[in-house]
Design a protein around this nucleic acid. Structure first.
Length: 261
DNA sequence: ATGGTTGCTTAGCAA
């Protein structure tokens, strides 16, 4: 059994104690992190290693930054799509663990949906798909984990009318999500929660969590050989409570898959 | 329509 999780921690510095205690309590085999917001030397590597984890980082100062943590060896770490685009934002890292290729991604938010940030988001999602098509095989065991900044369906939004025209819900990004699935990825959360949700993010503004104004924008997508082995999936909603929470809760999925693979 | 909160950086941006 493999436990895979993904968590946008919204600053690994601000979330260090929460991250370490969550790791020790939940002991996922693999944890995908987003929004580290620190350079590599600001990442709490020694503490993470003390907790029994290896790490592969694509770190960046102030914004973005992604990582993969794992109890087993992380092999062949790689960052960035290696395409023709000049991109300074750290939004992708991947590695092989337990025979799986695992990607941790932080998709652009898209801002107000009018300017450069929106153009960049749509282009980045296109580049992600092109990268998968170019470098990966959907018949192989692969996991795409992270904050895609897409709520795939109105069922994934507590108040769909309020969010309908935003960058998280517009048809363009829902189409990008659908194209990832068409390539060969399966939304394991949807498979185990066909009713929609559970939500993974609540805006700090407007006291989103307190008002139940959530969306499902963090995802674990699996190619078919792995999706078939997924036995359950959920969101650790409690981690959004208490003092100094991230605005995202951890998302996890269990797979009937050998750790030794 | 606007506002509300948090984090990084230090007044303004990003989410």
């Amino acid at each position: 059994m493999l436990k895979i999780a993904t968590w946008n921690v919204n600053s690994v510095k601000a979330r260090k104690e929460r991250l370490l205690s969550w790791l020790q309590r939940e002991m996922p085999d693999v944890l995908s992190l987003q929004e580290l917001k620190v350079e590599a030397d600001g990442f709490p590597l020694a503490e993470v290693q003390d907790a029994g984890y290896q790490a592969v980082l694509n770190a960046q100062k102030t914004y973005n930054g992604v990582a993969l943590l794992a109890k087993r060896e992380l092999l062949d770490g790689q960052s960035g799509f290696g395409d023709a685009v000049e991109d300074t934002q750290a939004r992708h890292v991947e590695a092989t663990v337990c025979g799986l290729r695992v990607l941790s991604v932080y998709a652009p938010n898209g801002g107000d949906g009018a300017g450069d940030k929106w153009t960049y988001k749509l282009a980045w999602l296109d580049r992600l798909l092109a990268y998968l098509e170019r470098t990966h095989d959907p018949r192989a065991p692969l996991l795409l984990c992270g904050d895609l900044n897409i709520a795939p369906d109105d069922k994934d939004v507590a108040r769909p009318d309020a969010w309908k025209h935003t960058v998280l819900c517009r048809p363009e990004v829902r189409d990008a999500f659908a194209r990832l699935l068409a390539w060969g990825l399966s939304d394991v959360m949807r498979a185990h929660h066909p009713e929609g949700g559970p939500y993974t993010w609540w805006d700090y503004r407007m006291l989103g969590f307190q008002k139940g104004n959530g969306l499902r924008i963090d995802h674990i997508l699996a190619t078919l050989p792995l999706a078939a082995a997924c036995t359950s999936a959920g969101v650790d909603r409690n981690e959004r409570k208490g003092t100094q929470p991230s605005d995202h809760a951890p998302v996890y999925a269990l797979f009937d898959w050998p750790k030794s693979a």
